[in-house]
Design a protein around this nucleic acid. Structure first.
Lengths: 241, 241
DNA sequence: ATCCCCGTTCGTACAACGATCGAATTTTCG
DNA sequence: CGAAAATTCGATCGTTGTACGAACGGGGAT
């Protein structure tokens, strides 16, 4: 609980890359890349430092020279993933389309590596790739006419929608993957459970009976929410001027 | 990867509670309650099945009679936490205030047990407490004039804001707790890092220099985002009629 | 050419973990 | 009162994160 070292001075991001002498066969980049690959392939449960080492044919503990511990490695991994997010250029498409593109791109990346979502709440995202996103987002929102704290607020709003929605996406993805069935099949299998408790949850049961047959595309819900968020932001900006 | 059993038939929620004979000293309720208490006290890192057992003076593996494995226990824990969310009554305060109250209450609960957030993406939330929230939310949104898929979409939008924002909250909370310092101190310590890379991220650095001194209350950002979301939803509802 | 230094790798080791199994214990029913 | 069922727990296995120190090997100094 108590800090053993200064938390900023010992942060990964401040410690310079190791000088290269001797015979460096490993590197931070390669380790982080391999970690992402292993997590993509095996999921968080199939990930361990030993398996990671094996995947790059290294000794079980060789990576500890480049990375203090597993948490620090995951911190690097989170930032690496953030690097995949493509932020549209405001100048080219206007703030609203750029903001929409950013949120969509963010969600796409989160879905591509759905295991990162659980890491967000537990590992700080303050690496260079995260800063690049913030930098572009600030440019975007400033161009939209926001300033000061509003910029931070609007930024959080956009990111929250991407992360929050992707959390649901990930839960569904994991459930279907674990069950080896489609989402529709899963919904169908849930039906008897819903019917059993229908009396306790009349609104839920009623909605379910009417709408559970229509196939629900998660993308539609995401887009609906995104448009509402942007509408709300738009209204605020309009009201200001 | 491949499903060993039918995933729904073996779900915790479908398996009936154990019949009570013999001398039950433990129970699901008590185990889940103790798990929540231990997670609150020690955080996710300090939580293990062994420690949980010790906290209720039980044998190391006694709980496996009531719970199939750790993941299933966490599934129960997630639902237990969801039970703490108080959903306002639509009839009393109108849909907008009820929706705001729901999202605020959800976030409050998530902050009170910030470790649950990481569980959301990895453990399905389909227990009775989760259904209660859905039930009330559906009533709320139906009263607001939505129907069909829109209800599910709007519900996801509200939950996404709570979860997404709480994810950032949790990251900050964990960082300050780990460092043993206030958020303001942490920001101050981050300054030299930001200055070092200022050239690469001009917008970020510029915003930072102007605004990092003002103290940022996370609640303000949350409320700002919530109002934008509700405005966007309101506009959609108005446009429909 | 030789040596040593030091940057890098890895084998060993340990405590803690999740989980299985079956023996031991206690309660209720016939 | 005895048998069967219900519940607990100790022993144990395979795996994890990582601390430690020995081993390795290439470059600079001699």
């Amino acid at each position: 609980m108590a800090p053993e070292h200064d938390p900023v001075a010992t942060s990964v991001w401040l410690r310079p890359g190791r000088p290269r002498r001797g015979r460096p066969q490993l590197s931070r980049e390669e380790i982080v890349g391999a970690a992402v690959r292993l997590l993509d392939a095996e999921g968080p449960d199939g990930f361990s430092m030993r398996r990671l080492a094996a995947s790059i044919s290294a000794g079980a503990t060789s990576m500890y020279f480049y990375v203090a511990n597993k948490d620090e490695l995951l911190e690097l991994v989170v930032d690496e993933i953030l690097g995949e997010v493509e932020v549209p250029d405001v100048e080219a498409v206007g703030w609203r389309e750029a903001a929409a593109g950013l949120v969509r791109a963010f969600r796409t990346v989160l879905l591509r590596h759905s295991w990162v979502i659980a890491l967000f709440g537990t590992h700080p995202a303050i690496g260079p790739k995260a800063m690049r996103i913030s930098d572009r987002t600030i440019a975007l929102l400033t161009a939209a006419g926001l300033s000061g704290a509003e910029v931070a607020w609007a930024s959080s709003l956009l990111m929250s929608h991407a992360i929050g929605y992707a959390t649901s996406d990930a839960a569904l993805d994991r459930a279907t993957r674990a069950a080896g069935k489609s989402a529709a099949d899963l919904v169908e299998q849930l039906r008897p459970f819903v019917e059993r408790v229908a009396d306790d949850y009349p609104n839920y049961a009623g909605w379910w009976r009417q709408n559970a047959t229509i196939d629900i595309d998660p993308d539609d819900g995401f887009e609906f929410g995104l448009e509402r968020v942007l509408d709300g932001l738009q209204a605020w900006i309009d009201k200001k001027s």
